[in-house]
Amino acid sequence: MGFFVNDMAKMEDFYTRALEFTVTDRGQLSAANGPMQIVFLSRDPAEHHQIVLMNGRPDEIAFNVINQISLKADSLATLKEMHRRLVAEGMPGIAPVTHGNSLSIYVPDPEGNRLELYFELPWYVSQPLREPVDLTLSDEAILAQAEAHARSLTGFKPRHEWRAEMARRMGLA
């Protein structure tokens, strides 16, 4: 995904320092309104860019048109480390939640874009669902509480069953 920013240096610093993205490229493009600075960021060596920052965001907009930027964590340990880092950064509005089928952290970036950092759980439950979760607990306690809660909800099933159902519905099975 790519989005326009006001303060390139502040946004680049946040994404590289707090969320550990790496700058893979940077440069300038000619555009109708003049030159545009662009920074490519990734956390995956197989992906040239996962996020693109480009200057040119208007100073005054009625509301932020980005609903959320969702970034998948590879493990609960990674999600918990990101939570620790965001708390240490003093980021406002950090909200760890369970969606029943994932554990997420919602937090605004420095320009108010809502980020969702999430770890997928091995089951599915009907959506939408959003309940607070304590990411300071042990991994075992978090997963046990999340599973017990999910099993009590409508639509609970193993994720592989849900994926197979979606493949059938999409004509891919």
Score class of each variant (00 low, 15 high):
D13K: 13
T24R: 11
P110S: 03
Q50M: 14
W123H: 03
D139K: 11
E165W: 05
P92D: 02
V133T: 05
M82H: 12
N101R: 01
V65F: 08
N33F: 08
M36A: 10
E147H: 03
V39R: 09
V5Y: 01
N64R: 10
K80Q: 15
D139R: 04
V97A: 09
A148C: 05
L29S: 12
L76A: 15
F14L: 14
E161T: 13
L153A: 09
A173P: 01
M82L: 06
L76E: 11
Y15V: 14
N113T: 09
Y106D: 12
R130F: 01
H49L: 02
A62S: 07
F119D: 06
E147N: 02
P122D: 14
R130D: 08
P128Y: 01
R17P: 04
L143P: 01
A88D: 15
P158M: 02
G112Y: 05
M82W: 05
H149V: 12
G2M: 10
A164R: 11
G112A: 07
N33W: 03
R85Y: 01
D109L: 04
S152R: 06
P92Y: 01
M166T: 10
S70H: 00
I142W: 09
V65T: 13
L117D: 02
D139W: 02
A18E: 13
A148L: 11
D13L: 12
T98L: 07
D74K: 15
N113S: 12
M11I: 11
E165H: 08
D13E: 12
S104N: 02
Y106F: 11
T22L: 11
R43F: 09
S126F: 03
L41I: 09
I142T: 00
A18K: 02
V52Y: 06
F40P: 04
V39H: 10
H49P: 03
L129N: 00
N55Q: 01
N55E: 00
P58C: 09
P110G: 07
T22N: 10
D109K: 13
R168Y: 10
K157F: 00
R43D: 09
V133C: 08
E165Q: 11
I51E: 15
L103A: 04
G2F: 07
Q28N: 13
V87A: 09
L71M: 07
R57L: 06
N64G: 07
S30P: 08
G93H: 07
H160A: 14
D13I: 07
L71N: 05
G155I: 01
T154I: 07
S138N: 14
L117F: 11
Y15M: 14
R85V: 02
P45R: 10
N64W: 05
E165G: 14
T24E: 00
